[in-house]
Every structure is written in structure tokens, then in C-alpha cells.
Design a protein around this nucleic acid. Structure first.
Lengths: 239, 239
DNA sequence: GTTTATTTGTTCGTATGTATT
DNA sequence: AAATACATACGAACAAATAAA
């Protein structure tokens, strides 16, 4: 239940609060690790872990011999910032509501090679779900999800077919990471109709394969995003 | 000169070698931190730092109480960093060469609002470089780079105008991180001609703003990638 | 241009806590 | 319930990069 009773997370939160209310914003530089350790009455190593956490969250950045700086923030939303998020979660991060309507649902063994490869299946039945997803009332994405039948209970899935599949999966499996590819494509007749754009408009096509820690593929997802409404944001670090 | 005389990088390399030659690949699981510490004759903290490094490079993944696993690799390319690939990195990863030809070069104060905002300039002169970049002999990207005049020596820039601008900048400034946005657009007349695609084909448009640690914008870059030839790859972590 | 102070980076040791099987 | 494995936290010391004197 997210009972993080560790010190460095507490410290990280305190530092974050200070950043937000402007206590540390002088020249965008933080006190030294030693000073912070004194201020919060913890060891320097704990400060370093707190700072590491804030660096992972793209809030701080360090430079050897110089100091720790507050990172330039985008006012917008970053898809990578909070790690791996479901559509539902990213909508929330955006301050929007999300909903989904079902287009098709089937259990099948007739699968494109791409799906077989990514899920590492031969003849096993796979759930194939095609849904239209909204940010507030705007159609945003058509997503096709493929999951091995063994990973979900069919009755439970059908009950929650327009809800968060991610959550359903996490009740049984342990999602660790995803491989993702982004490319640009043109809206076909079918896509343009669902997404309420003209045929021939540009779309972002995102293929995602999601794995457990032990490297077993859990989910394959092919999503088409409206190119005029959706942007992927990312932060890259030097070194 | 990359004189990394720290132990954990050495250990990380050794572990990486063992992974590659298959020594650790049994069930995709590594020995415990204690065992690794014993094996390499270092403290457990050093092992943890080595493992952390390999996690950052998307080579390993840990799960509390369970163990450390080898991450599923894409046969194509796996980004070592926080996500997206640079043009040069990508070319190398595909076993291709990259080159650039100059389209236009000017020093100007007439700038689009987008550039002024991102570089935080008003009337200062800015170098504006427009180049066409190739994978082997295929035109792949049109990139427009904007840099404040004060950050580069004009003569040096002109000499290296088809080389790595990034490297030039790093001689004077300290690049720390970038903010990047990816969207899908359609090829205009000009773009389609240079990229040798038909007008109306989908392109990936990537805006990148690069900052120093102290949060000063250094470079603004607007690149158009052929949607049919280029794919961005990304690895996302849960949590 | 060299030295000095500051700041982050590395590495050890030790002990205890928490999650998983 | 016990064993295993990762997580947290302290203290201490030295190294390396940077900036200021």
C-alpha cells in the first residue's frame, strides 16, 4: 500500500516542497550535500539518495565539483517523466479524464506475425481488444491490445473491457518495463473515421511490448495517436 | 580522456561481458549482491553501484526480495540512456554511416517566436543552420539548429558546418540535458523535395531544447525525420 | 599560474529493515 | 517459520573537478 517509511523519500519530498515554494531557487542552485545533511539532520549518503531520486524525476541535476541545480521544467506533461504509465494514468497526470469505448473483442489464434513474435506465441489463444480512447471528450487513440489468454480471467476481462487493462494484469503479473517504438503514419479510412480526422492526416503509431522482470512478454500494444493533438515528451541527459 | 578509474565502472563492464558471453544467462538471473561482492572482491555498495549503472543502461533490472534479472534486449537497438537516440548514435547502431550537407547558414535576429522563446533571446543574433542528414546515401532528416552567437566562434563554426555541432558547443559550454517533443506532421513541398518523399507523406517532427546545468538554453533544434524510415525507440520502467 | 577551499564522487565497513519464496 | 535477496541508513575517509583567492 505504498508505505514508504524511508528517510530519503521524506527528505526528497521536503526538498521538492522547498523548490516549489522558492526557498532554494536563488540562482537555481542548492546548498551543498554537507549543508543539506546538517539541515535535515541525516547522513550525507541519505541526502545523496534523496537527490538521486529527484534527479530520476527530472527535478534536479548535479555537476561534479560545481553543485546541484534545479532543472528547467516544462509546464507540459512528459510521457517518460513518471516512468511507465497506462493511458488512464497519463490522462490523470494531464489533469484530464479518460474513457474508452470498445470497438472489437475476440479470443483468437489467428495473429499477425508481428504479434506472434512479440508475445512469443505459436498457437496459443490470445485476447485481442480494439478500443477507442478519449481524453475528456476528444477521441485521442485507437489501441489494439494483445494478451496471452493465460494471463487474464476471461469473465473478469469482459466485465472491465473498457477499463484499465493494465490494472487487471497487475493483479496476476508483475509488470517491470516496456520496449516502445514510435513512428509516423497516415490515417487510413478506418482510423480517420474513429479519430475524427481527415484521411491522410499524420498519426503517431506506437508499438509497445511490456515485460515482466524475468523477461517474459506480457502485453503487446499497437496504438495510433492523433498527430495534431498528442506529443511525446522526453528528457535526455548528457553522459 | 575518459579516465574512469572507479571500481564500479570496471565491475559493471565485467558483469556486462559475462552477460554477453552467457555466463549469467541461466534463467536470466544474476547471483545475489553478496555473492557478486565476494566474486569481485569489493564491497556490496560497489556492486550495487555497478548494477545501478547497468540498470540505467537498460541492461539489468532488479526486483526487491527476488533478484536481479537480465533485461530483454531488442535485436535492433537498445538505448543506453534516458530514451531517445541521437542521429549519430542511431546510425552507428544500425551499422550505417551518417553524413550531412549544408542547405543554408546565416546569422540573424529575425527569428520565429518559437525560437525566441526557447532560446530566451530578444534581439541578440543567432546562428541558424539548416542541414540535410543522411544514413549512408539515403536522405533521412532535415535539421534546423539555432544557437546564440556568443556560444560559438563563427570561423570555427563555418569550418565544421557539416560536422558535429554538439561537439563544437561542448568546447565552450556545458551541456547537461535536453527537453524533447515528438509529433507527426505532413511533408511540405520543400521538405518532400529534400527528403525525396512525396508531398503529404508523414514525418516525425522533433523539437529539442538543450540546456546547461544552470538552466540556460544553449541550443534549439527542429528536425524532420522520414516517417517511413525512422523509428524512435524508448524503454520505460514501471515505478 | 598556483594554491586553497568548496563540492560532488568513490569506497570501504557495519547494522538493521523489508519483501519473496 | 526460516532462508534468501534487495533496501535503508549510519559513519568515515580519500579522490577529483571546479572556482575563487
Amino acid at each position: 500500500m505504498r508505505n514508504t517509511t524511508n528517510i530519503f523519500t521524506e527528505i526528497a519530498n521536503k526538498i521538492n516542497t522547498k523548490i516549489k515554494n522558492g526557498s532554494y531557487s536563488i540562482e537555481q542552485k542548492l546548498p551543498s550535500e554537507y549543508d543539506l545533511a546538517k539541515e535535515f539532520n541525516v547522513s550525507r549518503l541519505t541526502i545523496r539518495k534523496a537527490v538521486d531520486l529527484l534527479i530520476k524525476q527530472n527535478i534536479l541535476i548535479k555537476q561534479k565539483g560545481k553543485g546541484t541545480y534545479i532543472m528547467k521544467q516544462t509546464d507540459k506533461f512528459q510521457s517518460g517523466k513518471n516512468g511507465l504509465l497506462s493511458f488512464t494514468e497519463s490522462a490523470r497526470a494531464y489533469g484530464k479524464t479518460s474513457k474508452a469505448t470498445l470497438i472489437t473483442f475476440e479470443k483468437t489464434t489467428q495473429l499477425p506475425e508481428e504479434v506472434k513474435e512479440n508475445l512469443q506465441v505459436q498457437e496459443e489463444p490470445v485476447f485481442h481488444i480494439k478500443r477507442l480512447r478519449f481524453f475528456d471528450e476528444d477521441p485521442m487513440t485507437i489501441e489494439e491490445i494483445f494478451i496471452k489468454e493465460t494471463l487474464l480471467d476471461e469473465a473478469t476481462l469482459e466485465e472491465n473491457i473498457t477499463g484499465s487493462i493494465f490494472k487487471l494484469i497487475e493483479e496476476k503479473s508483475d509488470i517491470a518495463y516496456s520496449h516502445q517504438e514510435i513512428e509516423a503514419v497516415l490515417a487510413t479510412d478506418e482510423l480517420s473515421e474513429f479519430l475524427a480526422v481527415e484521411k491522410g492526416q499524420p498519426l503517431l503509431l506506437v508499438h509497445t511490448t511490456t515485460y515482466s522482470a524475468s523477461g517474459h512478454p506480457i502485453l503487446f500494444d499497437k496504438s495510433y495517436y492523433r498527430g495534431d493533438k498528442y506529443t511525446f515528451k522526453n528528457i535526455l541527459h548528457r553522459i
